[in-house]
């Protein structure tokens, strides 16, 4: 920051007249760099705990267990960049998985059941969008409401039973593509596509503009409501995909599928350097953070830490990561 701030010449006109920062500065002072460093550190520490960590297959198999959550976190990143938040996707996963499982258990052919699940996800995204965009209510509280509602509907549909998935559809994580479990492949492909969309298209740039200053973005002719609608529908469908993948991985569905996983989704986005107030963040950041989180939680499991301690650590990580990103952004902003 010092280079930028101490340079005296005509800086009055605003930001565009500021001298360009050196490249190393741009690369170093980015939250994603921090995530990458932490990831490398995490792998080193974890491999000390257990030699398994040097086995790439082991890491990939561990990642397959969180790939669905990570997939949703990618889209959530875009939602947060646009200045909104969605806390309901974990409940959405449960409800769409329950609808899918219930449909196929009552004799609907599998492809149709999948379609039903996806449509349910789309509808849930639509409900969120209705309240946030049409009714102009804050997304935080709306999605807390729908979080309870979707989970409650799943509870009504499935009760305390677990619904079995047909044999033929079980085991999406056991399908290997070039030795990589399918959920991981889906996640990586989605990350690439979304990174290109967010970083390289007009649509992507408009998401950043909405998050930075929605009023200004509207005056600049950006259809912010339409873009937010697309984002909410997108996260709804992706959550449904994630829910159905989880159903296939577990082989049966209960209403408490992905219970409390909204923490991990938000955590992945925050750890990856997404700015909670919108306008900043990247898909590669969330991508790295997802791997970091898997390494950390698998490392804790290998080190025989209780799930409760892991929960505590995740909570602390969320707070620390948001403090860190806020700090970095406040230093680079002006």
């Amino acid at each position: 920051m010092s280079a930028a701030e101490t340079s005296p010449p005509a800086n009055v006109a605003g930001r565009e007249s500021a001298p360009p920062r050196p490249l190393w500065h741009l690369v170093l002072v980015r939250p994603e760099t921090l995530t990458l460093v932490l990831l490398i550190l995490g792998v080193i520490v974890a491999s000390r705990l257990s030699p398994y960590f040097l086995d790439i297959g082991y890491i990939l198999r561990s990642f397959a267990l969180s790939a669905e959550i990570a997939l949703v976190a990618l889209v959530l990143t875009m939602v947060i960049i646009a200045g909104e938040i969605d806390l309901s996707p974990a409940a959405n996963m449960a409800l769409s998985a329950c609808i899918f499982a219930w449909a196929q258990a009552s004799g609907v052919p599998i492809p149709l059941a999948v379609l039903l699940g996806l449509l349910a996800g789309l509808a849930m995204g639509g409900v969120n969008a209705f309240f946030v965009i049409v009714m102009q209510l804050p997304s935080i509280i709306v999605t807390i409401g729908t979080l309870i509602l979707y989970r409650g509907l799943a509870q009504i549909l499935a009760g305390d039973r677990s619904i079995r998935i047909a044999e033929g559809f079980i085991g999406v994580d056991r399908i290997l593509v070039l030795g990589v479990p399918l959920p991981v492949v889906v996640f990586v492909l989605a990350a690439i596509v979304l990174a290109l969309v967010l970083g390289g298209t007009i649509f992507g740039r408009q998401i950043y503009q909405i998050g930075t200053n929605e009023v200004a973005a509207r005056h600049a002719g950006i259809r912010s409501r339409r873009i937010k609608l697309i984002l909410f529908l997108m996260i709804g469908v992706v959550a449904a995909i994630a829910g159905i993948m989880t159903a296939s991985r577990l082989g049966s569905v209960r209403y408490d599928l992905a219970l409390g996983k909204e923490l991990e989704m938000v955590l992945m986005a925050m750890l990856g350097g997404t700015y909670i107030f919108g306008g900043r963040g990247t898909i590669p950041g969330t991508f790295l953070a997802a791997w970091l989180l898997v390494v950390v939680s698998t490392g804790m499991t290998v080190a025989n830490l209780l799930p409760a301690i892991q929960m505590t650590v995740l909570g602390i990580l969320l707070i620390v990561s948001i403090i860190a990103t806020n700090f970095i952004y406040s230093r680079t902003q002006r």
Partner: peptide
Amino acid sequence: IIVTLGTLNLYRGL
């Protein structure tokens, strides 16, 4: 919202 989402898990873990 983010702080208390974190402490929600932190306190439950404790």
